[in-house]
Nucleic acid binder design. Structure first.
Lengths: 223, 223
DNA sequence: AAATATTTTTAGGCAAGCCTAAAAATATTT
DNA sequence: AAATATTTTTAGGCTTGCCTAAAAATATTT
């Protein structure tokens, strides 16, 4: 089992995330640079090194995709990250939003046994505090726990993860009212009368959403 | 609060340990190199850098000692290390001997809040699984929990940490029978008749120790 | 005290990761 | 299709931490 540096691991994870939505099959140099906050030239540098280690497929000007091995390592990294986030929230009492940066460091500690014992200690959780699925030691994970927005009760928090029907008009509407992928929601109230909901968006703005929209929006509960 | 690299932290910790026994006031280049497994030239390199950051006093060919600030940072590092060791043993069920290397990595995660919460989660322990005292956030720590070997009961484990009377003849005897500082003991049996004990040394050799020696040996219980 | 041994420092180099500026390749406009 | 804009790569440099080999300083023997 090869050992990667923290920098290498961070590149793998960034590429993994960028190519996660199956629509996209390759990550561009610029996108990776943006994700990591480094110069594009540094990315090219590293891509060559990772390609030499057979962790990704690289062809000049073509963008990159992880190899099987690269995917394996990246998935394991995600596993570590999400287990630590779970630990920080469940055991140490951190808020679910203040936890990412610390997990970003903890995830780099290399010890299979540590991760395995942590997993057991936490009761082999399937999802982390953000609702994201935690891969098991073999890289398998549950699919996202997504539900329709209309199924939420007042005071529940969620994040937008997808739509049921993806007609252009609907997506345009979502963009218009800022209900984009990743938007955080807090349900304030639900009106029985017409099934509409008042929702706080990204801890800032409050809007009212019709039942039709609530039915078509997939969200994932968060804490 | 300045942020140190892992390498810098490792140097601080090594120097801290080397100068811990108050007898020694300066750590030599070679001793540091040996402790870290690096070349002496690399140590000289780093000593200059750490001196420039006011973390230690460095004069060519004179050896080094930590500054107040250096000591503070090193103590905090020890705190982090021992808290993580405690976590690994108490919560994750690691054996107390398989824990050092992992803690070596965890200790470098920089987050005051993380350490504070971990401390609380563990119930603010005063000693780690090796019996070493855990400094509090201000750097204060209890003195070692040392007891006379003669006070131990069969099946208790301990490590040699000092002597009561340090006559040369006694120390020579200890060296002779391998009862040196850091030796691990497991009490097998105690004979009421003459107060002598049968003890397993470093999980290998079994010897019998007279009451006089047992009274003069300070040990620290371990798990 | 001179000779020898040991320790420490200097000098010069190397890999990993980052940078900026310029060149080359690819995409988008017109 | 030519012109322009954007993306990606190359080239050259920097810092951190490490190395080896040789020089300098200090310690120990004789």
């Amino acid at each position: 089992m090869e050992v990667l540096t923290q920098a290498e691991e961070n590149y793998l994870k960034a590429i993994f995330k960028l190519t996660e939505s199956d629509a996209v099959k390759a990550a561009s140099t610029n996108a990776i640079a943006a994700a990591l906050g480094t110069a594009a030239a540094s990315v090219t540098d590293m891509l060559k090194r990772l390609a030499a280690k057979n962790l990704l497929h690289y062809e000049k000007h073509r963008g990159v995709a992880l190899t099987e091995r690269g995917n394996e390592l990246a998935t394991n990294l995600v596993r570590r990250h999400r287990l630590w986030e779970t630990f920080l929230v469940e055991k140490l009492g951190f808020g679910w939003d203040g936890v990412h940066d610390i997990a970003e460091h903890l995830e780099h500690v290399q010890s299979e046994e540590l991760v395995e014992r942590l997993d057991i200690f936490l009761g082999r959780p399937k999802f982390d505090p953000h609702g994201d699925p935690i891969p098991d030691a073999k890289g398998r994970m549950a699919s996202r726990k997504q539900v329709q927005l209309s199924s939420l009760l007042p005071n529940e928090k969620a994040v937008v993860v997808g739509v049921l029907e993806s007609q252009a008009a609907f997506l345009q509407y979502l963009n218009r009212v800022q209900l984009t992928l990743g938007t955080n929601l807090l349900v304030q109230e639900r009106f029985e009368y017409d099934g509409s909901m008042r929702v706080l968006i990204n801890e800032r703005e409050e809007i009212t959403i019709s039942q039709k929209v609530c039915d078509n929006l997939f969200v994932q509960k968060t804490k």
